[in-house]
């Protein structure tokens, strides 16, 4: 095949995968913005949501629609429990202690899912049509293209919501200066809990999409670690940045996989993360919150 066409096709597939990355990254960034907590359990929350969906839709035979609603409710409940019982007691504690707590929560969720649902991959009901999408002669796998469309619509809607709604303004106020926001009558605790709800929603949707595109196993959550590079590139505290960073990282991952071998795909995001740290630690759109010492 013509290498230019190949390149275009790999680029399209990569950018399409980047849509889901943006969705996952958004959940992490809003929590970081509200409480300076980097949530290493994001991937596990996402994976758990996909299992909730499976259980509701298949085991209890509710079908995809009610399955999705049940999964959303379940994910939000889990996120609120994590926020209330693991992270709120840690408020004001050193930053690395908080990171370690989220890391521990990830380990707990991974273990519990492994014990309940086992290590083998499960067949999730297809919510995405398989038929390939052709864009101007480019061939894009159907599930990836549709997952991309859904992810981008949701990311766009959430970005708009966070920009224009009262809740979004409260979030930005709390992010800018917690104490001032608090004294102006903003319920900072409520804002933090609210960001966990947003993370639960983005995690749930991206989890179900991801399980549809790939398969449902307890290691599904590891994708979220790849998203670290998206978050750094976008700028840790930039909500809008995640979308563009997601596209760039997805594209780079796909194209490097094509150029130097698919096995390198698994480390591309980490190499990129290191490079970004070297060259521009604030990312593309982050404010200069980096403290050099």
């Amino acid at each position: 095949m013509n290498p230019m066409v190949m390149f275009a096709e790999y680029s399209a597939v990569g950018i399409a995968a980047g849509g889901i990355y943006a969705l996952i990254a958004l959940g992490t960034v809003v929590i970081f913005k509200s409480s300076q907590t980097f949530n290493f359990a994001m991937g596990e929350m996402m994976m758990l949501s996909a299992y909730f969906f499976y259980t509701a839709a298949v085991t209890f035979a509710l079908g995809p629609f009610f399955g999705m609603i049940a999964a959303l409710i379940g994910s939000i409940a889990v996120a609120l429990i994590i926020e209330r019982f693991a992270l709120r007691p840690m408020m004001g504690r050193p930053f690395i202690a908080i990171v370690m707590v989220t890391f521990g929560i990830g380990s707990i969720i991974r273990g519990i899912v492994g014990m309940i649902w086992g290590p083998n991959s499960l067949d999730i009901p297809a919510i995405l049509a398989r038929s390939p999408v052709m864009i101007g002669g480019l061939f894009i796998p159907g599930k990836t293209a549709r997952a991309f469309a859904i992810a981008v619509v949701i990311v766009g809607a959430l970005i708009a919501f966070l920009r224009y709604s009262r809740a979004g303004i409260a979030l930005r106020a709390a992010a800018a200066d917690q104490i001032t926001a608090y004294s102006m009558g903003i319920d900072v605790r409520g804002v933090i809990a609210f960001t966990w709800v947003i993370a639960a929603i983005t995690g749930c949707i991206s989890g179900v999409l991801m399980a549809n595109v790939n398969s449902l196993t307890p290691s599904l959550g590891l994708v979220a670690l790849n998203v670290l590079s998206v978050i750094i590139l976008g700028g840790m505290n930039s909500i809008g940045g995640v979308l563009i960073a997601g596209f760039i990282i997805g594209w780079l991952e796909s194209v490097t996989g094509w150029l130097i071998g698919t096995e390198f795909r698994e480390i591309t995001p980490y190499v990129l993360a290191l490079l970004i740290l070297l060259i521009r630690p604030t990312g593309l759109f982050g404010t200069a919150e980096i403290e050099r010492i």
Binding site: M90, V101, G104, I105, S107, R110, G111, M115
Partner: peptide, 20 residues
């Protein structure tokens, strides 16, 4: 079969429990 995930769960619980 569940030994490995059980271990992961307990490791995580210890991390979170002791930190809090």
């Amino acid at each position: 079969l569940i030994l490995v995930p059980l271990r992961e769960t307990v490791f995580g619980l210890l991390i979170v429990g002791f930190l809090i």
